[in-house]
Simulated scan of single mutants.
Amino acid sequence: MTGIFRRHWPGQSDRPALALHCMLASGSYWGGIAGHLGGRVDLSGFDMPGHGRSDDWTPGPDDPDYHTAVTRIAASFITRPLDLIGHSMGATVALRLAVAAPEAVRSLTLIEPVLFAAAPDPDEQARDRQMQRLLSEGRREEAARGFVAVWGAQDFDDLPARMQQQMIDRIHLVAAAGPTLSQDRADILRKGGLESIHAPVMLISGQQSPPVIHRIAGALAERLPDVGRATVPGAGHMLPITHPEQVAGLIAVNLDRA
């Protein structure tokens, strides 16, 4: 796909890494993580379609779903084994890549992967239905407010007006990724898939994140051959932004394990 804005934080040239951001944000927030890593990896990233400085997502009738489109873009960055880092939906893309090509992953750090199919949750299912209903009725701001109330770092009303509008404009992308995350249409959880990842994996959660996040981490950890789990005290879902030093420290632990 054209119109994708690439990001790069230079570091150790023989240690490439790729970082994948969450929904309704951009790759820019990995800059804080890169700073705390101090050049230990040569970190690349990109803004997902419809996010940050990338072009809007305007799929044609024969184009893939949103999650698949993002996964293909991420795969285009991989030319040799690398350290793969993902947050929220970005973490599910990272996991999808690792299952598809475990030999391409040197280490895998998953920060709050929202693969809800791994731990079906009635509350999340209700939130999905609510979002679909609001979007079908054209109530985009209410949908964005509801999403941020659960997954954001601060109240919607405390965000700058420009950021509020960006979230309203993009909220349909959250719904577009929903089936892959809640129904595992990408078959990430297929038999033998997680078990094939022999690179060291680190699962990072925020202490104050929704309970489903911790259940997902537990379900994934049960199947991964080489896995560590960490919880950041006082943090919520947006911990790469709110707690970059702690998150970078945990990423570094996993880098050392590779």
Rank of each mutant, 00 (worst) to 15 (best):
L134P: 02
A219Y: 06
D55H: 13
S209L: 03
V212L: 02
P49C: 04
F5D: 13
P210R: 02
I213F: 05
S76V: 09
V93R: 05
D56N: 13
V247N: 01
A252R: 08
W151G: 00
M238N: 00
P211F: 07
E245M: 02
S28K: 12
R96F: 05
R15H: 14
S182D: 03
D55C: 06
Q207G: 02
V201K: 00
I85W: 11
I204P: 05
Q246H: 11
P179V: 10
P160I: 09
A176P: 05
L159S: 05
R215N: 09
I73G: 05
G27W: 12
E124I: 14
E142D: 15
R229G: 13
Q166V: 12
I4W: 13
S136F: 03
G86Q: 11
R72W: 09
G32A: 15
G228D: 14
V99M: 10
L108S: 07
R72F: 04
G206R: 01
V150E: 10
R223C: 10
T109D: 12
G249A: 15
R185E: 14
W30R: 00
D157V: 12
D256L: 11
T68G: 01
T180I: 05
A144T: 08
H21C: 01
A221H: 07
V212H: 06
G45Y: 08
T68W: 09
G27P: 11
A91W: 13
A100H: 10
G27D: 12
D63C: 02
G60D: 12
L255C: 01
A199Y: 10
V212G: 00
G193T: 12
E222C: 03
V174S: 01
T109L: 06
D14P: 01
G35K: 07
S28W: 14
G178Y: 05
L194D: 11
I213D: 04
L95A: 09
Q183E: 14
I168R: 11
L250E: 08
S13Q: 14
F116N: 01
A100V: 08
V114D: 01
R127S: 11
R133M: 06
S13A: 15
G60A: 08
R53L: 13
Q165W: 04
A69T: 15
A101V: 11
L97T: 10
I241H: 00
D184P: 03
M131I: 11
L134H: 05
L37Q: 03
Q207I: 00
L173S: 03
R72S: 12
P225D: 13
I251H: 02
W57F: 14
A117W: 09
R139V: 07
A230F: 05
G45F: 08
L43C: 07
G60R: 03
T242L: 00
I188T: 15
V41I: 14
A25Y: 10
Y29C: 00
Q12T: 15
G228I: 03
A153N: 07
G27S: 12
I171M: 01
V150F: 04
Q165T: 11
A217K: 03
N254D: 11
S205F: 00
I168A: 04
S107G: 08
E141V: 07
L97R: 07
L110V: 10
Q125T: 15
A230I: 02
G146K: 00
R72K: 06
F147G: 01
A98G: 12
Q132H: 14
A118K: 04
A34F: 09
L84C: 10
G3P: 14
H172F: 05
T58F: 00
G32T: 13
I168V: 15
Q166E: 14
M167P: 06
A104N: 13
H243I: 01
